[in-house]
Amino acid sequence: MTLLIKRSLVEQAVEQLRQRVASGAWAVGQRLPTEPELASELGISRNTVREAMRVLAFSGLVEVRQGDGSYLRSAVDPLQALQALSRCDLEQARETRHILEAEAIGLAALRRTDADLHALREALEHSGAHFHADLEQYIRCDLVFHQRLVDAAHNPALSELYRYFSGVVAATLHHNLSHAPRCQLVFDLHGQILDAIEQRDPDRAKALSRTLINES
């Protein structure tokens, strides 16, 4: 019974702290009030504050620096963002891929380096080797290829957003490929996208990417 009550108090403290972050009470990079100060403000024990801060640190919202205090790492809770992503349906996932992935691939066609092309060819080769084999292994390889496509845009924000979103992409691929036979023509679109990127043709790369998203 005591453990349930303690967990409830920690959850309440976490929620109050998240609300303060959302309201803009602290700026990103700002040192947060000390545990005694937060305990006094929230009317709870220091132990509860400590546990709440551990939860926020685990979710990536807060950074705890040993001997220096806690700092606000992000104004957006990554854990809540992941939860929102996990609730999107197949059509919402497709819309998001069109906006995020296809546009990033267009940028990749303009910004790619020779090193990017080498990494993409390597990932596509691994992916192709598993296309007609184990589904889980193929999806893992395919995600590496798609992440490298986005990384070739050389925009860290886009890369990180896609890294968050890749779990939804994996779930979508698993659903679709489990309910329909794998089509070689659809897989071949990956190579055509890579060719368009190599030729620095952003319009063709984006068009092919949208076709792939619709078909996969």
Rank of each mutant, 00 (worst) to 15 (best):
74 S>N: 14
99 I>C: 07
76 V>C: 07
76 V>G: 08
63 E>G: 00
117 L>N: 01
48 T>R: 10
179 H>K: 13
90 L>N: 10
192 Q>H: 06
25 A>H: 09
37 E>F: 03
209 S>T: 15
148 R>S: 07
165 F>T: 03
155 N>D: 15
209 S>A: 13
28 V>L: 03
211 T>F: 01
171 A>D: 10
65 R>P: 02
194 L>F: 10
91 E>D: 11
148 R>K: 13
164 Y>Q: 14
140 R>F: 00
37 E>T: 13
164 Y>D: 12
203 D>V: 14
149 L>P: 06
39 A>G: 03
121 R>L: 01
90 L>W: 04
41 E>P: 01
148 R>D: 07
129 A>M: 09
137 Q>D: 13
196 A>P: 04
166 S>V: 02
133 A>I: 00
7 R>Q: 15
215 E>Y: 05
97 R>G: 08
139 I>G: 06
125 E>P: 00
37 E>V: 13
66 Q>W: 13
133 A>S: 12
75 A>T: 05
7 R>H: 13
9 L>R: 10
134 D>W: 03
174 H>C: 09
141 C>W: 03
133 A>E: 14
27 A>Q: 12
36 P>M: 04
101 E>I: 09
106 G>I: 06
18 R>F: 05
107 L>V: 06
158 L>K: 02
26 W>L: 00
172 T>M: 11
215 E>D: 07
105 I>N: 02
18 R>P: 08
119 A>W: 05
51 E>I: 00
84 A>W: 04
205 A>Y: 01
200 R>I: 01
55 V>F: 08
67 G>D: 04
181 P>G: 08
6 K>D: 13
68 D>C: 07
186 V>H: 10
64 V>A: 12
134 D>N: 15
99 I>Q: 14
33 P>V: 03
75 A>G: 13
108 A>R: 07
57 A>D: 11
142 D>N: 11
99 I>M: 12
183 C>R: 15
1 M>H: 13
54 R>N: 13
45 S>L: 07
205 A>R: 00
213 I>W: 05
203 D>C: 04
186 V>M: 02
49 V>N: 04
155 N>K: 00
136 E>K: 12
154 H>Q: 09
77 D>H: 03
22 A>L: 09
85 L>C: 08
189 L>H: 04
160 E>W: 09
154 H>G: 05
67 G>V: 08
73 R>N: 12
103 E>Q: 14
85 L>Y: 12
135 L>V: 00
99 I>A: 15
156 P>N: 04
104 A>E: 05
35 E>P: 00
89 D>Y: 02
79 L>G: 07
85 L>T: 06
155 N>E: 09
144 V>Q: 13
28 V>F: 02
184 Q>A: 15
131 F>M: 04
